[in-house]
Design a protein around this nucleic acid. Structure first.
Lengths: 197, 197
DNA sequence: CCTCGTTATGTACGCTCGTACACATGGGAT
DNA sequence: ATCCCATGTGTACGAGCGTACATAACGAGG
């Protein structure tokens, strides 16, 4: 009854969708659950997002900004003087250490692209976005490699209940840098006692 | 009518489940679709696998053997003399280059562990299995890193429609090896022209 | 041969889902 | 002030789902 003329309805639906995925997983995402979460009638969700894919694309696009924000909060990542692997490892630690819901959500939507072609471009945008950011500090090949290993590390943490090990991440990221840039390196020569599974 | 006393029913249901996931994705997996694919009545699937999780665990466990078989087919991976990164890159190429259905299926079930705790241990088994195999050639930390980057590379290929680049994979894997083992290295010093996004 | 428990089968119940569609409403253009 | 259409609302339909359960067939052990 009341809520006629709600100009932010669409945005609130996206927010609701993100909350739903965060709480029930992507399988729990439906027009109805989103409608309930946003406290709007069912018909409203189908009006603003004709198909579920539309809604997921919008949600994934917005969720992607989560990591971007964490990155943006660390200007050191763009500082050519800073220790890139150490900074990246720290950022990952923050991201994985905080409310894990956000990370799971982002990866869940990200991974959903495996079966949903509609999400594929958005997933690519994410990888490319992080890649571009990192390429500014290294080179395209290294950047892609860093993105790959970041994904891999996050998956290991999320999928196998292994706690995140920042020192391990730093070591692995360091190894990926092209050799000329031995950085200020305290010497990657020998392994840290680190944490092996 | 006919098929009373079918001693391999259970196994055929697992096979059918794998085919279903391969064709329709994990969301298409249901007691009914599996029953149809295996050409058995609905009640039969619920008899052998009370819950869908049971069925998925069995399917994931069997699917995991896919990569293991590819690995086993490359004894060079266990040969201390062989060039590990090159061999790994080649194996990945074979795996990703063949019938992609198998890879997608394996990753789909693997990634499903993100939201299904029941699958978590099986996913961990896989990572650990590959890890142990690689640890025999390097060390635990490096092995975990290799698994991470392998996952990351596969995800990049599967999620962003980027073709697999074996040379790139070889380079990245090489960098991950601990420095003392500069291997026979033709010199990781400079980047290949490679493929950058 | 007969009994009995494991295995197999068919059907039904209650639920959620995507989608369609008819109707209400209110703000901006005229 | 009026009209019109983008926006909002409620309800219904058909389909698929997990699950439960009563019943049938079979093979092993008596």
């Amino acid at each position: 009854m009341a809520r006629r003329h709600d100009p932010e309805r669409r945005q609130r639906l996206i927010d609701a969708a993100i909350r739903v995925v965060g709480q029930k997983g992507i399988e729990g995402l439906s027009h109805r659950t989103v409608a309930a979460e946003a406290d709007v009638p069912l018909g409203s969700t189908t009006y603003h997002f004709a198909t579920l894919d539309d809604l997921m694309v919008a949600a994934l696009r917005q969720a992607n900004e989560g990591f971007a924000k964490v990155v943006a909060a660390h200007p050191a990542l763009s500082d050519p003087e800073a220790d890139l692997p150490a900074e990246l490892a720290r950022v990952l630690g923050e991201w994985l250490g905080g409310d894990r819901t956000g990370v799971e959500l982002e990866y869940e939507l990200y991974l959903a692209a495996l079966r949903r072609p509609a999400l594929r471009p958005v997933a690519a945008e994410w990888a490319e976005g992080v890649g571009v950011l990192l390429a500014a500090r290294t080179d395209p090949v290294t950047a892609r490699a860093l993105v790959a290993v970041i994904d891999g590390i996050c998956l290991q943490v999320l999928l196998t209940d292994t706690p995140y090990d920042e020192e391990y991440a730093r070591e692995v990221l360091t190894r990926l840098l092209p050799v000329p840039g031995t950085r200020d390196a305290s010497g990657p020569g020998s392994l840290p006692p680190a944490t092996a599974g």
